[in-house]
Amino acid sequence: MRSFAYHQPNAIPEAVSLLAEQPESRPLAGGMTLIPTLKQRLAAPAALVDLAGLPDIKGCSNGNAVVTIGAMTTHAEVASSPLVKSQIPALAALASVIGDPAVRDRGTIGGSVANNDPAADYPAGVLGLGATIVTSAREIAAENFFFGLFETALKPNEIITAIRFPVPLSAGYAKFKAPASRYAVVGVFVAKTATGVRVAVTGAGSGVFRVPQMERALAEAFDPTAIAAIKIDAEGLTSDIHADAGYRAHLVTVMAKRAVATALGAA
């Protein structure tokens, strides 16, 4: 690992100005992706701005049928939060299948969402629930946040402070886990809300995406059988040594059915 300057600001504006001052600096949240990247010398930032000292961006709260999760809340905290478990159990379940226990003890929701790994779990939950990403500068709807393969709407000196999840009527997440990396080969988050059904898919392509055809079918009848016959086009989906695009396309339907079944069970 190459050397870097280290800052641990105590306030969000300070963090933002530190990032702005040094164009080669990077914010550090849980570090579960950034630190391995540094170790393997794949990145060499001049400075790290550690967000661990920022007040008020950790923890789960609710109000107005919205669950707000601070950006520095760990996956383990989300998975075990009584609030999340009661309001959006599918989100707690999603957090409980990220990585492994030691990763869940350090990894954060803000870090995961900002990183936007194409096989990460949270982007499916954020898009599937129609969440709002709250940053140091603004609020961004999930639709406008994820730009595919590690790209997001975040500006270089903008940090996520919280994510606001509208509480759905019911929701489910089903993940087909890569046995080695524990990332999603395909993960599907399905949410039934007052305004309709949302289906968000991670792992299958270069970034999280929705499946309008399934959303329409589920709006008609919220049941696994409603989407069983829907085939996803493999064109443009990921093929790698673990799974070919055709298989991933098939898994989207299977996982979507299972997510719906979970949502019905949990409703």
């Binding site: 630190i35 391995p36 170790k39 383990a76 492994d100 030691a102 990763v103 350090r106």
Partner: peptide
């Protein structure tokens, strides 16, 4: 790659991978 867990320690009682901790 933070997979193997040979480095797990307890930080404030939580199991964490010390190879992925500054």
């Amino acid at each position: 790659t933070s997979q193997c867990g040979a480095c797990v320690v307890h930080l404030d009682g939580l199991a964490v991978k010390s190879c992925t901790l500054l």
